[in-house]
Design a protein around this nucleic acid. Structure first.
Length: 505
RNA sequence: GGCGCUUUCGUCUAGUGGCUAGGACACAUGCCUCUCACGCAUGGAACACGGGUUCGAUUCCCGUAGGCGCUACCA
């Protein structure tokens, strides 16, 4: 069993956009699979027909494509264990429901939702279990004839798992160790609904994981309470020897305040909680995504990997392949992790720094074009190399460097007051004359000539450069001056200087 | 309410029966400098509480408190 082939799965239900916590769960599964040379399966758990949302499945697939998490088999990937969409596996589940029924490990229950509601109102903390099942309407409490006639008349029913009370159920969790619970606290879970001829999560999950030969179940902590039930189900089918190993991941929490991370937190604090932008087909509302918010997928992956896991060293920037080799389920933290979106922004900044200028220029080019500016790629790369260190997002590059493309039409008031003195116009006039006379307008040559002139005249470096900057940029910020004048060229430099002299006087 | 999980700087975390409890983000200060950033340096900042066990507990045990989750014919 220990040398079993590693096969793990990510099995979302297509009920909407993929939550960032789900992305992390998928990532951990992926890292684990890759590290062990195993397979990663994409399964769709659409057993709740009421909650199905159009487009969700494609959205999830697209999200993983963007993030660089790929699957080996499953919906849209093929494989030998299909179909991988649970709604297409009805007949399989029916067969296994029958096995449980025939073995007396499950039973049919005819109680209507209304009857159950009434019971819950009558009895505080009502639970459908060994203590109450004989008082309900099911194949255990009713006679065979009654059951038969109910069935004949087309009465809808559910199949419930018959949990035997008073048993210690042990779940061995890779992250949490041994977790023991008393089966008496478990209820007789609904396994199957005749209404839509579909199983519930618990049955479908166990049957599929078994049939698909899943070796490890890595999922969110919200499943920990039902893990004992799952163990009981594996036993009921006699599959305990090939039962997957469990690992329950801690949840992602709000950046501040109480509770788990929600879409609202993102809206309130200004960060996405979904990988891609999502347009809800029902409400028409739009939720922002990491991709559209200009996060680099590598940064999102890196950040997520470290949210609840740590390799034990001080290295924080890691590529996907480094993550694959270092990842360790046993080192996952047990407590929930607050979603530190500021650190995520820092990761994005780091990845911008690490990517080549040409890669960033390629991402930035459409932004430039959208502003109606046409620029050659080599020039944009130079600008990117000068500016990328000062932004957290690629789109911020525009505000930081638009002066390269568009001459200032107005001058920042504060900067004018601070940097444009009464003799600035005259000095800039001198500078313009000097620059105009330069045959060689290279950055190096300008630097040499201007420095010599400043020294000769006894001017201050700051007064000249800052006024010069104001003339070319319109503000008091930007890279070294000759990195600006050199790139925009002699003609443009002189035009901007003259305009500033004219306007500012 | 019941059951389960959990608890190291504000946040993500490393770590150990004896350490000045380490790193990163954020924050502050300084340096660099033609500005703004980057960068570099420095600083403040944590073992939830109460009992044990022990020569000694942040570390092991038990309680308490806080946090999180589950408690559906949802996953």
């Amino acid at each position: 069993m220990t040398d079993r082939k590693v096969r793990v799965r990510f099995a979302p239900s297509p009920t909407g956009p993929l939550h960032i916590g789900g992305v992390r769960t998928a990532l951990y599964n992926y890292l684990f699979a890759k590290q062990h040379g195993g397979e990663f399966i994409f399964r769709i758990e659409d057993t709740d027909s009421n909650r199905f949302v159009e487009g969700a499945e494609e959205y999830i697939l697209e999200s993983f494509r963007w993030l660089g998490i790929d699957f080996d088999e499953g919906v849209s990937f093929g494989g030998n264990y299909g179909p991988y969409r649970q709604s297409e596996r009805r007949d399989i589940y029916k067969k296994y429901v029958k096995i449980l029924l025939d073995a007396g490990k499950a039973y049919m229950a005819f109680d209507t939702p209304e009857e159950l509601d009434r019971k819950r109102n009558e009895i505080e903390n009502f639970q459908y279990d060994a203590t109450t099942r004989m008082a309900m309407r099911n194949s255990l409490s009713l006679s065979a004839d009654e059951v038969e006639s109910l069935l004949q008349s087309g009465h809808q029913y559910v199949v419930r798992f018959k949990v035997e009370p008073g048993e210690k159920v042990v779940v061995n969790d890779i992250i949490r160790g041994v977790v023991t619970i008393d089966s008496s606290i478990l209820d007789d879970k609904v396994l199957y609904k005749s209404a839509d001829e579909l199983p519930t999560y618990h049955l479908a999950n166990i049957v599929d994981d078994h049939l698909m030969e899943v070796s490890h179940v890595i999922r969110g902590e919200e499943w920990l309470p039902s893990a004992p039930l799952h163990v009981l189900l594996y036993r009921a089918f006699g599959w305990q020897d090939t039962m997957p190993q469990f690992a329950h991941l801690s949840l992602l929490l709000k950046p501040e305040g109480n509770g788990k991370l929600s879409k609202r937190d993102g809206d309130r604090l200004g960060f996405p909680v979904f990988p891609l932008e999502w347009h809800d087909p029902k409400s028409g509302s739009v939720s922002s995504g990491f991709r559209e918010s200009d996060y680099l997928p590598e940064a999102v992956i890196n950040f997520l990997a470290l949210l609840g896991w740590n390799p034990g060293d001080d290295v924080e920037i890691m590529s996907m392949s480094e993550l694959v080799s270092k990842f360790d389920l046993a080192k996952c933290s047990k407590a929930g992790a607050r979603f530190d979106y500021k650190k995520m922004i820092w990761f994005n900044h780091e990845y911008i720094l690490r990517k080549s200028d040409s890669e960033i220029a390629k991402i930035f080019m459409p932004v430039v074009k959208a502003h109606g500016v046409d620029v050659a790629e080599p020039l944009l790369e130079k600008i990117v190399s000068l500016m990328k260190g000062r932004v957290n997002f690629v789109h911020e590059l525009w505000d930081a460097c638009s002066f390269y493309f568009i001459a200032p039409t107005q001058y920042d008031e504060k900067t004018v007051k601070k940097r444009w003195k009464s003799d600035s116009a005259q000095k800039m006039e001198e500078l313009a004359t000097l620059l105009q006379g330069l045959e060689d307008f290279s950055i190096e040559n300008q630097d040499k000539a201007v420095h010599a002139w400043i020294e000769e005249k006894g001017y201050g470096m700051g007064e000249i450069m800052n006024a010069f900057r104001l003339a070319l940029v319109g503000e008091g910020k930007g890279p070294q001056m000759f990195d600006i004048s050199g790139l925009i060229g002699k003609e443009e430099t002189l035009a901007r200087l003259r305009r500033a002299i004219m306007v500012l006087g």
